[in-house]
């Protein structure tokens, strides 16, 4: 197993390469996921705030369902 981690003497090049790819890909995924969740939450509160009586006319989401 230590042979594996040594990477034939190239460990200082191989593992940083894999580490930075892993970090950036996981980081980008998490940032995008969190961004979506916060937007969804903001939309939900906005819908709760708008009064129900004129909410239907107010909601741009309805407009697309026809076509």
């Amino acid at each position: 197993m230590s042979d594996f981690w040594a990477m034939g003497g190239y460990a200082v090049y191989v593992w940083p390469a894999y580490a930075i790819v892993g970090l950036v890909m996981v980081g980008l995924l998490l940032m995008s996921w969190r961004g979506l969740k916060s937007k969804e939450a903001a939309l939900a509160t906005l819908r709760c705030d708008s009064p129900a009586k004129n909410g239907a006319a107010n909601d741009p989401d309805d407009q697309g369902q026809r076509s």
């Binding site: 995924l29 961004g35 979506l36 939309l43 708008s50 107010n58 741009p60």
Partner: peptide, 30 residues
């Protein structure tokens, strides 16, 4: 496929963001 996954997440966030802006504008106008 990772790109497709993240693209979908970001596009959905952008579409919802635009929806929020439109709703806020309508509320201000009302």
């Amino acid at each position: 496929t990772y790109f497709v996954t993240v693209l979908i997440l970001r596009m959905r966030a952008e579409i919802i963001g635009r929806k929020i802006r439109t709703m806020q504008l309508l509320q201000v106008q009302k």
